[in-house]
């Protein structure tokens, strides 16, 4: 029998796996964006707790970042996937349902990625806040800006500018971490490659295609972050 080649398998025509693989890549990107956003929210709160919180908040944030950076991401994903369903079933029982309620893999995965990347976001935001010159905040106080205006006009834009390179790194990590969510059965890029590999018995071609699509996504995103950095640093004089 004639073995199909790489381009035949990945073609966009009749019987080709091209369209579903691209769909998988799209799901990967959406999953990563969800995880990254959740992580940014967690990170912003934890960074705030570390910078301006009282003792309890500081310790809580410290424990959060230490634990989440010390245990494998896969463990967190398993915990949310299996644990989330157990928790929902328990909550359901309180409300009189006696069936099993599953947490969808996508939600569990996005939440797990969000919470693990939140620990990295925390350090990025904290470092970026430290980089904001005290004089700029003083100047804002001197011109009479109230707290919220100061945050919105001065602190937030400056923190974002300083955080951008770090956020780019976190995004790349999140993107690669999203591949682990395939263990929960979410049909993202890697899971789609597994399905294709299983049904055609051509694992090499499918995993190679997946790797190439990941490389495309990471290249596009690093180019985007680079141009964003140039844009947001346009007012900064160098040298």
């Amino acid at each position: 029998m004639q073995q199909p080649g790489f381009f035949e398998l990945m073609s966009f025509g009749e019987g080709g796996w091209g369209p579903v693989m691209v769909m998988g890549a799209l799901v990967t990107v959406i999953l990563a964006i969800c995880g990254f956003t959740i992580g940014a929210v967690f990170g912003a709160f934890a960074a705030w707790a570390k910078i301006a919180g009282n003792r309890t908040l500081r310790v809580t944030a410290d424990v959060y970042t230490t634990v989440l950076r010390g245990i494998p991401d896969l463990l967190v994903i398993y915990l949310f996937y299996f644990g989330g369903s157990a928790f929902l079933t328990w909550v359901g029982r309180l409300f009189g349902s006696d069936g099993f309620i599953g947490l969808p893999g996508f939600a569990a995965g996005a939440l797990a990625i969000g919470i693990t990347s939140g620990a990295q976001h925390t350090e990025v935001f904290r470092g970026a806040y430290r980089a904001v010159a005290a004089g700029e905040i003083e100047a804002a106080i001197a011109t009479g800006m109230p707290r919220t205006t100061r945050f919105r006009r001065i602190i937030a834009p400056l923190v974002l500018r300083h955080a951008l390179p770090g956020l780019g790194n976190v995004w790349q990590i999140v993107l690669k971490e999203s591949a682990l969510v395939s263990v929960t059965g979410v049909v993202e890029l890697l899971r789609q490659a597994q399905v294709g590999a299983g049904s055609t018995r051509h694992p090499f071609e499918f995993y190679l295609a997946a790797a190439m699509l990941y490389l495309v996504i990471t290249s596009i995103s690093s180019a985007t972050f680079r141009s964003a950095e140039t844009y947001f640093n346009r007012g900064v004089r160098r040298g």
């Binding site: 690669k176 682990l180 890697l190 490659a193 997946a210 790797a211 990941y214 990471t218």
Partner: peptide
């Protein structure tokens, strides 16, 4: 560095 470790393991 651009592709996930899990993909490399599977490959």
């Amino acid at each position: 560095r651009g592709s996930p470790l899990l993909v490399q393991i599977f490959l």
